[in-house]
C-alpha cells in the first residue's frame, strides 16, 4: 500500500471507513452550536448588568476566550479540568468538545445578540416603558422579536464556521471523520485518499449551506427594507 500516487482502490476502501465518523462530526457540530447559542445569552445578559467593573471584567474574559486558540481550550477542558482539585471532573472527549467549542464560539454569538439588541430602535424601548410593560414582557414581546430575526443569517454563518472547527476535536479523540481519516492513514500508511475524502465531505456540506445562507441573507434584507418603507409611510 506504500504508493506514492493517488489510488482509487484506496479511495473506495477508505470512503466507508471515514464515513463512519460523519455522525459524530455532525452531532458534535449541532451539540456545540446549541451550547454556543445558549451560552451566548449568558454573555449578553452579563454584559447588560449595570455594574461597570463587572462589565469590564466580563468584556475582557470574552476577549480572552475569543483571541486564544480553541485547540488549547479543548486541551484545557479535556486534560486540565479533571486535575483541578475540588471542581475537577473527567469528561468524555465528546462532552469536552461540546463545552470547549461551545464556549469559544459563544463569545462570538454573544456579540451577534448584542448587535441585534442594539439595532432595535430607541423608540421601541421608550414605547415599552410608556406602555408600562414588565421587564419580561418588554423583552419577550417587544425587544427580542425585533432583535433576533436580523441576526439569523449571521447565526447561520456561525453554524458553518463551527462545523469547520469540529475536526479539532479529533485531537482529543472525538471519532469524527477527521479522526477516522487519520486512523485509516496510520493503519494503511495512506493519508492522501482519506484526507481528500474529508476535504470533499466538508466542501459538499459547507458550500451549499453557505449558498443557502447567502440567499437567506438577501431575503431577510429585503424583508427588513420593506418594513423600513412601511415605517416611512
Amino acid at each position: 500500500m506504500n504508493s506514492t500516487y493517488w489510488s482509487w482502490d484506496t479511495f473506495l476502501d477508505a470512503l466507508p471507513f471515514v464515513l463512519q465518523g460523519l455522525g459524530y462530526t455532525v452531532g458534535l457540530t449541532i451539540a456545540s452550536y446549541l451550547f454556543a447559542l445558549l451560552f451566548g445569552f449568558v454573555w449578553t445578559f452579563l454584559r447588560r448588568l449595570p455594574n461597570k467593573v463587572f462589565h469590564f471584567v466580563v468584556t475582557w474574559i470574552m476577549e480572552f476566550i475569543r483571541s486564544t486558540p480553541p485547540l488549547v481550550q479543548l486541551f484545557f477542558i479535556y486534560y486540565a479540568w479533571p486535575m483541578i482539585p475540588g471542581i475537577g471532573v473527567t469528561l468524555s472527549p465528546f462532552t469536552s468538545a461540546v463545552i470547549g467549542l461551545g464556549i469559544h464560539f459563544s463569545t462570538y454569538i454573544g456579540e451577534i445578540y448584542r448587535s441585534g439588541i442594539e439595532s432595535v430602535d430607541k423608540g421601541q424601548w421608550e414605547a415599552s416603558r410608556a406602555l408600562n410593560f414588565t421587564t419580561i414582557d418588554k423583552w419577550k414581546k417587544v425587544i427580542l422579536p425585533q432583535a433576533l430575526p436580523p441576526t439569523i443569517p449571521m447565526l447561520g454563518n456561525y453554524f458553518i464556521i463551527m462545523f469547520k472547527e469540529v475536526p479539532l476535536a479529533s485531537i482529543i479523540g472525538v471519532a469524527g471523520i477527521m479522526l477516522m481519516a487519520n486512523s485509516y492513514g496510520a493503519q494503511n500508511w495512506a493519508y492522501l485518499e482519506p484526507l481528500t475524502i474529508v476535504g470533499i465531505i466538508f466542501l459538499l456540506l459547507s458550500y451549499p449551506s453557505a449558498v443557502l445562507i447567502r440567499k437567506l441573507e438577501i431575503k431577510m434584507n429585503t424583508r427588513f427594507d420593506k418594513n423600513a418603507t412601511i415605517k416611512g409611510n
Binding site: 469547520k164 472547527e165 469540529v166 475536526p167 479539532l168 479529533s170 477527521m178 487519520n182 492513514g185 493519508y191 492522501l192 484526507l195 481528500t196 474529508v198 476535504g199 466538508f202 466542501l203 459547507s206 458550500y207 453557505a210
Partner: peptide
C-alpha cells in the same frame, strides 16, 4: 473556505 484549516494542514503535511 469550504474546508477546515486542520484538514488543509494535514493534507499538505501528508499528501
Amino acid at each position: 473556505r469550504g474546508t477546515s484549516l486542520i484538514v488543509q494542514l494535514f493534507w499538505l503535511f501528508y499528501a
